[in-house]
Design a protein around this nucleic acid. Structure first.
Lengths: 94, 94
DNA sequence: ATATCATATAGATTATTGTCTATATAATAT
DNA sequence: ATATTATATAGACAATAATCTATATGATAT
């Protein structure tokens, strides 16, 4: 399995992180730009980003002083698909 | 939206609850039978079941002294689908 | 070299969640 | 009515996770 569904579901069980994912759905963003959408402090955002990164939900790239994060969309769909597959309903007609 | 993805992802972010879901995938089970698969005490299992029930991941029915739980498979697939849909990758060819 | 800005890390504190013991409820049996 | 069994609930305690402040790192600019 390419992605760890365990860390995936822990990562997406938090509202702040879901909101970050929504922000990154449209475009990549640097940390300070992400911060402007929240009341919490920058280190907290960095912490959430590191959890998302560990779960491979986001990737990062450095550009000068900034670090840009972007959403790894295929991780989201893969994990959801794998998980749903484990609990597939066999009663429905295919 | 029929199911609350918020409570869904909180519910599935715990290993014990995933294991309960796997047990219930095959067949419905009463609480004491579920308990035999874990080292933790019955009230803890009941607590996990109540979280799964609140998220509509399981349903329960009473039969005499026992309460039987079963997996609501369509909740799992719906929530996964809804969530994946929010972060759908538009770059891939359809 | 020093200053500044963006981000990450460390460690403390707080909030949330999981597990336990004790007990309540509800069904059945004697 | 009392006892027994299955499960749920309440409340205490423990473990985990989120947030904060302070500081370190690393890039750029002066």
């Amino acid at each position: 399995m390419q992605f760890d569904c365990g860390s995936f579901f822990k990562a997406v069980s938090d509202g702040t992180r879901i909101k970050i994912m929504k922000l990154l759905y449209g475009k990549e963003m640097c940390v300070s730009e992400i911060c402007t959408h929240f009341k919490m402090k920058q280190p907290s955002i960095s912490h959430h980003l590191s959890i998302l990164k560990q779960a491979k939900i986001v990737t990062d790239r450095k550009d000068g002083k900034e670090v840009y994060y972007s959403l790894n969309k295929c991780c989201v769909s893969s994990c959801c698909q794998d998980f749903a597959g484990m609990f597939k309903n066999g009663d429905k007609k295919e």
